[in-house]
Design a protein around this nucleic acid. Structure first.
Lengths: 218, 218
DNA sequence: AGTTTTCTCCCCCGCGCGGGGGAGCAACGC
DNA sequence: GCGTTGCTCCCCCGCGCGGGGGAGAAAACT
């Protein structure tokens, strides 16, 4: 029987390549506080193993036969949300990262990561932090950024009216809010739709939200 | 005259506390490829200094008198978008981080960061990567997550119609697409508005987007 | 000074849409 | 077997809104 580490981190490795699994396990076992408690060769097996072994964290390869990493991550997140998920993937960032991050996986590292970096990432994730590869961060951040193609140049007043157009208010009600005539609001609205090349209020509001002219909240 | 480092990183430090500025400068000067080319005590001065010195990166404190870090970052991003911005802030993550990240700042670290970590962060940012403190990432990730309160339970068909309702198509056109009568679409629409407690298509579409029932992109 | 832009206000027309009814039919639940 | 739910289809009404005109005054740019 091995030495029991009271605070050791229980790790489950899920990857279809035995070499990768063994390599990872070997590297991780060098750390005194890491304990590789199981391995699985695809998502389906990994899911069962996770339920049996109840690891603190699972390292999951993204591309696998039978059940891939994304499916497994989503399923595991539903059934055992306390188990941290660290996605391991090739040398480039997959577009599925958005869904994965949105689903709440804690880590995302590339396979060419330095062992020391991976160990740091595991610790960070287990301690409740999110550890995303810089490229992943960049991708997410870039998606948050407004596309710098303004395309439309609205006047300040028009921008103001546009925000109101995204509200439930009728033009008449907006007119009251802005202390102008309803005709004025309708006139602005016409110009806005013209400039934005949108057929109606609804599309204009959605388009404005997409190009971050107006905020999602409130 | 000092030794010219051909690839040295030119750094501008903007912080209202002289002690912090001097401390940072001292730490950073230990690195052979980092060059602190200037200091400023608030955003306004920092902005002018940035234009004169054209640094590769500016370290900016968030809270400052006269012009704070956010104002300065937004102004600098507009005038000199090539200059990287690293936000330095207290021990907790400010809510303004969303606007800052959305505005495209590259880095966000807490002041209790290890010097080695800060140096790494600077290198990462200068090389085009984004470096956000784990807590910042966590906050952003959590905002990306869908609020698990579905509130509304739409049938599959209704969800389908809802997606179409967010398109420019009229109910008649949607009916053709779905191969049903216009009346059917209108009937679904009525139920959807009822369930979502929204007064019209536009609000329903916006609400659906907010609660991630439909995706932003196409 | 002259031109352009921005904001304001007005008219008319027709259609898309919200809201109110109702109904038939298939599938599922118990 | 009978109630429920989901999907389909129909009628009517009134109003919000898109699209087409035009116009005047102030501000901003040239």
């Amino acid at each position: 029987m091995g030495i029991i580490m009271p605070d050791s981190i229980r790790i489950l490795i899920v990857d279809d390549h035995a070499v990768v699994r063994k390599g990872l396990a070997m590297v991780l076992r060098l750390e005194p506080d890491l304990e590789v408690v199981g391995e699985a060769e695809n998502g389906r097996v990994g899911l069962e193993a996770a339920k049996k072994l109840n690891p603190g964290i699972v390292l999951v390869d993204l591309v696998m036969p039978e059940m891939d990493g994304q499916e497994m991550a989503l399923a595991l997140r539903k059934s055992n949300p306390k188990i941290k998920i660290m996605m391991l993937t090739g040398t480039e960032v997959d577009d599925r990262v958005f869904d994965l991050v949105a689903a709440g996986i804690e880590g995302y590292v590339l396979k060419n990561v330095e062992p020391a970096e991976l160990v740091r990432a595991i610790h960070a994730v287990v301690h409740g932090e999110a550890y995303l590869h810089p490229d992943v961060m960049k991708k997410i951040v870039s998606r948050m950024q407004p596309q710098h193609a303004p395309i439309v140049t609205l006047t300040p007043r028009e921008l103001e009216v546009l925000e109101w157009m995204a509200s439930p208010n009728t033009y008449k009600q907006i007119a009251v809010q802005l202390s102008v005539s309803e005709e004025t609001v309708r006139s602005h609205a016409k110009n806005i739709l013209e400039k934005m090349k949108q057929p109606n209020r609804a599309q204009a509001a959605l388009a404005a939200m997409k190009m971050r002219l107006i905020k999602l909240n409130e």
